[in-house]
Write a protein that binds this DNA or RNA. Structure first.
Length: 291
DNA sequence: TCGCAGGGACTCG
DNA sequence: CGAGTCCCTGCG
């Protein structure tokens, strides 16, 4: 494989856990230790053996590694410290962390996350992936291939998507979310919302700003804040994590969304986002607290 | 085979 | 607030 780089000395990194913890939709599994990822208008292949401290990244230069992939994979963050702190909370958290201690929270593109999580509402993961792939194939541009078998496309920009009709969007099978996507495009193009400014906003204002877009409620806003803006104190609360928290900390009694958020804020503090990822991955893989 | 629910949010009453 | 509704399709 041409242009492969190796990163050494990385602990708490497991490519399968990172990609299958629900934060990313554009990846393809080759086998348990090899995945293709499409991000930043690039296609890379990542190879990593569990318990190894080195990561192989194909189709990357050393420059890309430093500028793009180290931040993208959150390799600069000290996960040992995060894990130590969360492990002190209780045995549930310890169990969840032991199961998914190689999870890292990716820093993905805000625009792509905005559209992707709008699509995610009341939808299943295979279906979400399909919609996004349809959109990239229809409105994106073909990316340089790393091995001629599969073709990948860039995620279309707001400028690309704003020209698209509702009917064309519906052809991508996004259904009732098509007007939401159009509203997102419109608000970005007309500069009612500037996605870059959200980086510098405090979390509350950032969330309120995102929620001005139709189809973006608290859960989707929090996903965007966590998975692309590095706002680690948010706690995206979907039906799964809600049942997990109710099951572990409220004797299985149903709570209001507000109560779950309040609990997470008090109990996990600025590490709430990480806690959410560990709990979510653990519960889903084991189908705990399934309805 | 077929009906149902799925990582929510909107819109009413 | 609470309940009903929303495209679409993978999965039971």
């Amino acid at each position: 494989m041409k242009n492969a780089v190796i990163v050494e000395g990385i602990n708490f990194f497991n490519i399968k856990q990172i990609l299958e913890s629900g934060q990313i939709f554009r990846f393809q599994k080759i086998n348990d230790t090899t995945y293709i990822i499409v991000a930043k208008d690039k296609v890379i292949k990542v190879g990593h053996q569990p318990n190894s401290t080195s990561i192989l990244i194909c189709n990357s230069t050393v420059g890309d590694l430093e500028q793009i992939w180290k931040p993208y994979f959150d390799l600069e963050t000290n996960y040992e410290e995060i894990i130590d702190t969360l492990n002190n909370k209780d045995e549930h958290m310890q169990t969840a962390i032991r199961f998914g201690e190689g999870i890292r929270i990716l820093r993905q593109d805000p625009w792509e996350m905005l559209i992707s999580f709008i699509i995610s509402q009341n939808n299943s993961i295979p279906q979400i992936k399909n919609c996004i792939e349809n959109i990239t194939r229809k409105f994106g541009e073909k990316l340089e291939n790393i091995d001629s078998e599969i073709e990948f496309y860039s995620f279309p920009s707001p400028e690309d998507l704003v020209k698209v009709s509702e009917e064309e969007l519906r052809e991508c099978k996004v259904g009732f979310r098509a007007p939401y996507i159009m509203d997102a495009c419109k608000k970005i193009i007309e500069e009612e919302i500037n996605l870059n400014e959200i980086f510098t906003m405090k979390t509350e204002l950032a969330r309120d700003t995102l929620m001005k877009i139709k189809g973006v409620g608290p859960k989707i806003a929090d996903c965007i804040l966590l998975f692309s803006y590095g706002k680690m104190e948010v706690f995206p609360t979907d039906v799964w994590i809600k049942r997990v928290i109710e099951g572990l900390y409220f004797e299985g009694k149903e709570q209001k969304l507000r109560d779950i958020q309040q609990f997470a804020k008090e109990y996990y503090g600025e590490l709430a986002g990480y806690a959410q990822q560990y709990l979510f991955y653990y519960a889903r893989e084991h189908e705990l607290f399934k309805k």
